[in-house]
């Protein structure tokens, strides 16, 4: 059985994001990055299948700038077998349609029984790349999966997915299929020393996105802005003790503390 996991590198929330002169995207910066948490959960889910059944191969794929290779190496460090990197590094915003079309093109050329993506990427919160790629590749898709089980003949699978409002919905799907995985459903393992060594030496297959036909993005950013303040937003100043004393004063005045 062959599984493909889509992994995206996301900048950490603490980075400063500055709107660029075009106002359509942010200035490129030297950000600190990590693997999208939902993708860590997706990879962990794939690794758990590999732990259970023998003869499971896991590939990871990432689309983006050169440094997306870091997230691929991290995935190999966690236990994935091989990485595919699709080079696509234009200036500015990249529509999910483009990213999905590259992943779909790769899926169509290579046979996988199962494809996992994260439900959503933490930086862009679109929830689109998985379902788009599934549709483009003609695969059935269920999003926000929290539990999965492959049938003994490995031709179908049972999945549970989270709905809002504390409900869980069940499906049976024919394979091949694409699932998007809800974050936090498992405990993603840490890279192991032996796998990290393997990852550092691993040959990452690189494909230039120019080889694939590009789908039309459809939407674009007209403008980026800094969010409006919805409340007063009084910023406390001084040393940490001065701020603490000031907060105590404010909250006592409002009778929240005696």
């Amino acid at each position: 059985m062959k599984i493909l996991v889509c992994v995206k590198q996301v900048p950490e929330p603490e980075n400063a994001f500055i709107i660029d002169d075009s106002k359509e995207w942010i200035r490129p910066g030297t950000f600190s990055y990590r693997m999208n948490r939902f993708d860590e959960s997706a990879l962990e889910e794939a690794l758990s299948i590999k732990d259970r059944y023998k003869a499971v191969g896991i590939d990871v794929i990432s689309v983006g700038s050169e440094n997306s290779k870091d997230v691929i190496r991290r995935a190999i460090g966690m236990g994935a077998d091989a990485g595919i990197y699709i080079f696509h590094d234009p200036v500015g915003y990249v529509s999910p349609f483009l990213t999905a079309s590259f992943i779909a093109s790769y899926i169509k050329e290579n046979n996988y029984d199962l494809i996992f993506a994260g439900a959503i990427s933490e930086d862009s919160l679109q929830g689109q790349v998985g379902p788009l790629a599934a549709e483009m590749a003609g695969l059935p898709c269920v999003s926000f999966v929290v539990k999965q089980e492959i049938s003994s003949d490995q031709k179908s699978m049972y999945v549970e997915r989270e709905l809002d409002g504390g409900l869980v919905e069940f499906f049976e799907l024919a394979l091949p299929a694409l699932l998007t995985i809800q974050g936090g459903i498992n405990k993603p393992r840490y890279p192991s020393l032996s796998n990290v060594l393997r990852a550092s030496r691993a040959e990452i297959r690189t494909i230039n996105s120019d080889l694939y036909t590009k789908s039309v993005p459809g939407q674009k950013n007209k403008q980026l802005t800094i969010p409006e303040k919805k409340r007063e937003g009084y910023v406390l100043s001084g040393s940490v003790h001065e701020k603490a004393a000031e907060l105590i004063r404010i909250l006592s005045q409002k009778s929240f503390i005696a």
Partner: peptide
């Protein structure tokens, strides 16, 4: 829509 952890708002349009 929010992007980058709610630190930026994107105003998005479509042509079609």
């Amino acid at each position: 829509r929010q992007i980058f952890y709610g630190k930026i708002d994107a105003h998005v349009t479509a042509d079609s």
